[in-house]
Nucleic acid binder design. Sequence first.
DNA 1: ACCTGAACACCGTTCAAGT
DNA 2: ACCTGAACACCGTTCAAGT
Lengths: 224, 224
Amino acid sequence: MSGRRVPVSRRDRPAKAPLSRAVVVGAALAIMRADGLEKVTMRRLADELDTGPASLYVYVDNMAELHGAILDELLAELSFETGAPGQWREQLVDLLSRYTTLLFQYPGLARSVLSLWPSGPHYLRLIDTLLGLLDAGLVPAQQAAWGVNVLLQHATSTAAEHGTRAENKTSPTALTTAVDDVDAQRYPHIARTAAALWSGTGPQRQQWAFNALIDGITSTPVPE
Amino acid sequence: MSGRRVPVSRRDRPAKAPLSRAVVVGAALAIMRADGLEKVTMRRLADELDTGPASLYVYVDNMAELHGAILDELLAELSFETGAPGQWREQLVDLLSRYTTLLFQYPGLARSVLSLWPSGPHYLRLIDTLLGLLDAGLVPAQQAAWGVNVLLQHATSTAAEHGTRAENKTSPTALTTAVDDVDAQRYPHIARTAAALWSGTGPQRQQWAFNALIDGITSTPVPE
DNA sequence: ACCTGAACACCGTTCAAGT
DNA sequence: ACCTGAACACCGTTCAAGT
């Protein structure tokens, strides 16, 4: 069990598939689905592909760029069907909810994506569809353009914040306790609003938030 | 220059200050201000404090918890003065803008904070002040309670997304190019809206976004 | 109780050298 | 041109052992 590193396991594998960007990204997505984004390391990925970590840099620039590629691959499973016409608002909320639900499973990816400007085909399709729905709702183009960013940023950061994986340790309990213990003197408005702050289920709050965002976007003109 | 690790440097330093949580967090904040959050590692922090990394775990639970503490320390420099009465909306936008500007300098911290539920005294003060301003604007308590979360999440994720540090490599250029090259056939709404998508300065878009959010929060009733 | 040396179990990325 | 072994320069966290 000691001794030199003998790559015996490599012989046990199917047959070394030729590498390509698609194969690398696909393997990365598979690892993320199985074990979470935190296990998608260059070393683990290389192992899975029967090569060394250095080889991956032929196909991806770096970790951040790989995360962007994983996102786009993940978005392939999102349906962009906008269904029956005349209900642009419901369709908008539905699409945003499905995008959020998808990212909810991978909060680490959401966190990473937040500091990227994704530009993959599926992400562009998402933006395009959202713009189309806002247009169907007769939202002025300038508000729609800025609004799409607000909507996607909200969806992504919601996934990053409340995501479902074990990584997410700190619970709202800490805040709840902190505020319970606090004298109403010091934080009177928190004390007064306490019940409302923790009320509602995740989906209820999310539904409300999307609707509030859409309301604001449609009703707030861009200056000038 | 080879040889054993002789901690000569420790003798050169002022005098080993007694450790405490406050000293640890203060040193962490100082490193972040000087070199960015990515340099705030347990090892660097320990070095700075003339001790080993293991010793820090007497005062902080782990990295995530330390980030929460750094945030609260950073928020100490935020002024919560709400100025003249009768202009709750302007004061709300002003406070949110100042919070965003502060976090803008430390996008890594913003990213980290997004998956925390901060509960430090300065963060609670911020929440309390925001709730007070919404109350002054006669916003129903339930909408205000849910709305504060939306506002803070937007501010924090904006800082995480567009932050100013070098870490942030991917520029909107990638997207701009991607969309310029795209045939208007495939993404008609993006092509149609292209000019509007990249228009405006950061502050203009931020100002608009905060106002749209506030509009939505004030005008969208919570169901039931 | 408080503190820490040393280890455990990893990282991303680069680059000289091979084919 | 494409690929990679090996190294560089680090990480967070734990724990047995000291005081």
